[in-house]
């Protein structure tokens, strides 16, 4: 009895400590892995966010302090913004750029949507060839199509107009490619059910497909809008004047022979970025969870 009493507690004392060691080791490793992961992500986030922060920080310094490298601008000043407002028609430039980017992205979305729907909902002769031709346009460098497009715009009398920037950009292989991939994985039964329920193909696209592709459409819209907003070369070629779109406005007025006006440039760029942030905030809430399959099974 005495032996039993003395020997029995021994493993009972040993076991919990072994478990604790094991748990401690695992916990430390997990913590380390999490810390390293978070560290890498934080560094990447900082690398992305810092240039934007620096742009707004510089724009908010007093014009004579733009070369100050202190991390926080103080005292805050809107001098650079009023300067930009006085020197260039920044409001009109942003509005023009917004209109151009919006029309281009809507056009590309529409073309992409219709083409992708045709490529996935039907089987027709030459389908693969046509699809490859669509996607193949992505591989053609801009410089190859630049001159023919320019000549065509000249003949159509669209040089120096916003339409000249928009029309050649209304179709994009990127939109077709991305939307086709999404539509290919769209539940076929939903399309068949809508057909059985009496909808036409056109009606199915707008009442069934589009409402369920909101997430990819929103994501694609953001990408297309930013692409169009950032496009510099083609507007510069077609418009040839600084008071048309914001990209050219900023260049024309701030990159002069006396060197760049960093304060004005940062303020102008800061204003030019706002619509992008707005679009992102507006659409990003749609880019959450694909819920298409929730109606199935």
């Amino acid at each position: 009895m005495a032996v039993a009493e003395t020997t029995a507690p021994a493993p009972a004392r040993g076991e919990p400590s072994a478990v604790a060691d094991l748990a401690g080791e695992t916990g430390a490793r997990v913590w380390l892995r999490t810390a390293v992961g978070h560290g890498v992500l934080a560094a990447l986030s900082l690398a992305c966010i810092f240039p934007i922060y620096w742009m707004y920080a510089t724009s908010l310094r007093r014009p004579e302090e733009v070369y100050n490298v202190s991390l926080f601008p103080w005292p805050l000043s809107v001098g650079n913004y009023t300067h930009v407002w006085d020197v260039i028609p920044i409001g009109r430039l942003i509005l023009n750029t917004f209109a151009v980017a919006a029309l281009i992205s809507v056009g590309q979305l529409l073309v992409g949507l219709l083409a992708a729907y045709a490529f996935t909902a039907w089987r027709f002769r030459g389908q693969t060839l046509l699809y490859l031709a669509f996607v193949g346009t992505w591989l053609v460098p801009f410089q190859v199509t630049m001159l023919p497009n320019y000549t065509l715009l000249y003949r159509l009398g669209l040089l120096n107009t916003l339409a000249g920037v928009i029309v050649p950009n209304l179709a994009s292989a990127l939109g077709v490619l991305l939307l086709r991939q999404h539509m290919a994985s769209f539940p076929r039964d939903l399309l068949d059910a809508a057909r059985m329920d009496g909808r036409s193909s056109w009606s199915i696209l707008w009442t069934v497909v589009v409402p369920n592709l909101r997430a990819p459409l929103a994501a694609l819209s953001i990408v297309l809008f930013i692409n169009a907003w950032n496009d510099y070369f083609w507007p510069a070629l077609v418009l040839q004047r600084a008071d048309s779109v914001v990209q050219l406005g900023l260049r024309g007025l701030f990159v002069g022979v006396e060197g760049p006006d960093w304060g004005g440039l940062m303020a102008g760029s800061g204003l030019a970025c706002l619509p992008i942030f707005g679009i992102y905030l507006l659409l990003q809430r749609h880019v959450v969870g694909a819920f298409v399959r929730s109606g199935l099974k």
Binding site: D189, D192, A194, G198, N212, V292, L296
Partner: peptide, 27 residues
């Protein structure tokens, strides 16, 4: 299919995920 006057129930149910039950039934 729309002109056949036949209704179908699918194995996957094929309910429209973006519509409420009432709108699914009334589709």
């Amino acid at each position: 299919p729309a002109r056949r006057d036949l209704a179908m129930v699918f194995q996957s149910y094929a309910l429209y995920p973006h519509l409420t039950v009432a709108r699914n039934i009334g589709f």
